[in-house]
Amino acid sequence: MNSTKQQLAQALFEQHAARTPFSTLRRAGEVLDAAAAYDVQDELVALLRKARNADIVGYKIGLTSTAMQTMCGIDKPVFGRVLSDQVHAGGLRIDLNRYVHLGLEFEIAVKLGSDIVPDGKPLSTADIAACTEAICPALELVDDRHAQYSTLDAGSLIADNAWNAGVVLADWQPLPDEFTVRQARVFSQHPPAETGEVDYRHVLASVAWLAQELASRGLHLRAGEIVMTGSVVRTRFPVEGEVWHYEVDGLGTNGVNCA
Rank of each mutant, 00 (worst) to 15 (best):
L8S: 09
F13Q: 08
F13D: 08
F13Y: 15
S23P: 02
R26T: 11
R27S: 14
A28W: 11
G29R: 09
E30P: 06
L32N: 04
A36P: 03
Y38S: 10
V40N: 05
L47P: 13
R52P: 06
R81A: 03
Q86E: 07
L92N: 01
R98I: 00
L102S: 05
E105G: 06
K111A: 06
V117Y: 03
P118H: 08
L123Q: 07
T125R: 01
T125I: 04
A134H: 14
I135W: 01
P137V: 03
L141R: 10
H146L: 06
A147N: 08
A147I: 06
G155W: 06
L157P: 11
L157Q: 15
A162S: 15
N164Q: 10
V167Q: 08
A170Q: 00
W172H: 08
Q173F: 01
L175H: 00
D177L: 01
R182P: 07
S188T: 10
P191E: 08
V198D: 09
D199N: 11
D199I: 03
H202T: 06
A205L: 03
L210C: 13
Q212I: 05
R222A: 04
M228L: 13
T229L: 10
T229I: 09
S231T: 02
S231K: 00
P238R: 10
E240T: 11
G241S: 09
G241N: 11
G241R: 10
W244R: 12
Y246G: 07
